[in-house]
Write a protein that binds this DNA or RNA. Sequence first.
DNA 1: GATGAATGAGAGTTCATTCAT
DNA 2: CATGAATGAACTCTCATTCAT
Lengths: 192, 192, 192, 192
Amino acid sequence: MSPKTSIQFEDIRKEKRRLILDSALKVFAIKGYHGASIANIAGEAGISKGLIYNYFSSKELILKETISAGLKSMFEQYHFETENYSLEQFSKLIDITFDLLEEDYEYWKLYFSVLMQTDVMELIKDSLMEFLMPVIQNFTQLFEKLGYAKPYDEARFLGSILDGLSINYIIDPENFSKEYCVQRLKTIYKLP
Amino acid sequence: MSPKTSIQFEDIRKEKRRLILDSALKVFAIKGYHGASIANIAGEAGISKGLIYNYFSSKELILKETISAGLKSMFEQYHFETENYSLEQFSKLIDITFDLLEEDYEYWKLYFSVLMQTDVMELIKDSLMEFLMPVIQNFTQLFEKLGYAKPYDEARFLGSILDGLSINYIIDPENFSKEYCVQRLKTIYKLP
Amino acid sequence: MSPKTSIQFEDIRKEKRRLILDSALKVFAIKGYHGASIANIAGEAGISKGLIYNYFSSKELILKETISAGLKSMFEQYHFETENYSLEQFSKLIDITFDLLEEDYEYWKLYFSVLMQTDVMELIKDSLMEFLMPVIQNFTQLFEKLGYAKPYDEARFLGSILDGLSINYIIDPENFSKEYCVQRLKTIYKLP
Amino acid sequence: MSPKTSIQFEDIRKEKRRLILDSALKVFAIKGYHGASIANIAGEAGISKGLIYNYFSSKELILKETISAGLKSMFEQYHFETENYSLEQFSKLIDITFDLLEEDYEYWKLYFSVLMQTDVMELIKDSLMEFLMPVIQNFTQLFEKLGYAKPYDEARFLGSILDGLSINYIIDPENFSKEYCVQRLKTIYKLP
DNA sequence: GATGAATGAGAGTTCATTCAT
DNA sequence: CATGAATGAACTCTCATTCAT
């Protein structure tokens, strides 16, 4: 009966925000960004269209936040020191990558579906770069240590392979042997 | 005095059809299928919206034709026998692939942008499979001949790498060293 | 402070629905189904085009609902037992019919304008038959009882006369003497 | 090889005009005025869209001409003296009316489909009145001679019955007994 | 905080009409 | 005389966004 404290309000807002982003992710993954409507998202979340605008000022912003929230949570899972990768960490990173793909299937589906659309890309470029740059740099350092002649190019090469494997897994998980590919990749880089 | 000959009309139609498909490709590549409007395509082509429907009965059909025209022209360029790949052909195929990426940059941008959108994928699946299946099969045969334990999985692994490299080249051609990656890939497979 | 109650929303919806159907009736009656546009209806109702689709999912559906709402309300006014017409009821039915024509002028204008358009007819056939069949059957029974040699044909003959009189009244009410025709019709059938 | 004479040209024009009107009638009868497109009519006639505009300056005009050409040709078939109907002529007129309905089914379908649409009606009102007025006047005179108290109202009553019977025959010729109704009508008016 | 009625711009599509040939 | 490519306005319908309650 007593008025809710501002802390309680804060909690409600955070939870609802989370709910909207999760619902948006589901709907975006199925229908794509342009194909999904605010009504779809509201329906999935079980709330009104109007309420969504209480939390996000536009559909574009929902996409941005969906993507960057995903990147942030993924970043947190990598959590080892940001510099000086070891071979063990390299190996582990490959494992983690594929685990995340499986775990956050919907997120990655959205991520890749949006990756190639120039105009949507524009929206998320900043969040993306913030996350990807250090990873590429770390690999560049590692490959330098390992004696590769062109460590940056090798890092891009590795990144590309991971992208390709990820996409193929996302498109058609049934016929794609994750295990084989992980093993094969480790063989190429002589990882433990 | 006399009406335009049917040959004249045919020429006009062929040319205009080409113009529309080319314009569609450009616009689709930038905005994606759902994000691109018929008005955008008409604007790019410098014609009226209505005229587009004199040539294609729907937006869906424009996408289908754009994709399958691209696949067809690409298929013609591979042109070596459809069975029994040799290592030389394997090597050459990698070269050709990256040449095509450079040559038909817009097409591949569209191709990859469309690849991840479930609903759009549905529209072009048939054309796509018709082209991709034999390629995967041929590689499976080749890897079998080369003694790989799981030739189909290896074919998918190779395909994924090519996808990943292609996408990274398409997204950011300036900072991506095509030459390094081609060379690196050939080293992995011990190609000439 | 609190959101609109669902009762308030329900009231708004009911009223607006009514408004749209009434406006549609007016416009359909003047321009016919194909000739009337959603913009016309929205204009007549003083609302936006978009709002109409908040209440009816298509133009077809608006027509269907318009027709069947009219038939339903008319059916309710006949209200005497559905079987075993008497001569008194026959006589009364003629009176009611012409009263309704006067009362629901616009509805009947639409009804008849739509009657002859094959494709539109297709849309409303079911609603129509549901209403008309029992009437024809009852008259067939009545004419059988009265000793007519071909009671069904006589029922169709009577129905045709009523149609013809109705249409002529609808087209040009000023110069058409309803009273004379009602009286004349009763004379033919020796009604009270 | 020699240039066609202007008389030949005249003939060609007349024939083509006829062809277009006939084709328009067929298409209008099936799809209605609004539902039929110029392309449909051109297709039915086996000519180009452009050529139609060489003969008629608008779609509206095609409708007008279709209707009034039909009325004119019908008028010619009645052909008995325009004044002083006899009972024999009355009887014959009923017969002719139903013969024409059967013969020119498509025309009458169009005629009635267009009858109730206020805006289309506007277009053909003049042609219509030119034809209908004398018929109504003649019947008024006849009913006066026969001693009816309100001969004009009786003429409208008869006209309405003919309309109603015609419409019901047009809508559903299979289940409508023309013969019964003709006979019945003659009985009412004590015709030979 | 929460609702959903309401808007308006813009989507894909159709079609009467024009016009160069 | 005849063609059909081309236009542009209007069509049905969708949807991100606003706002009174």
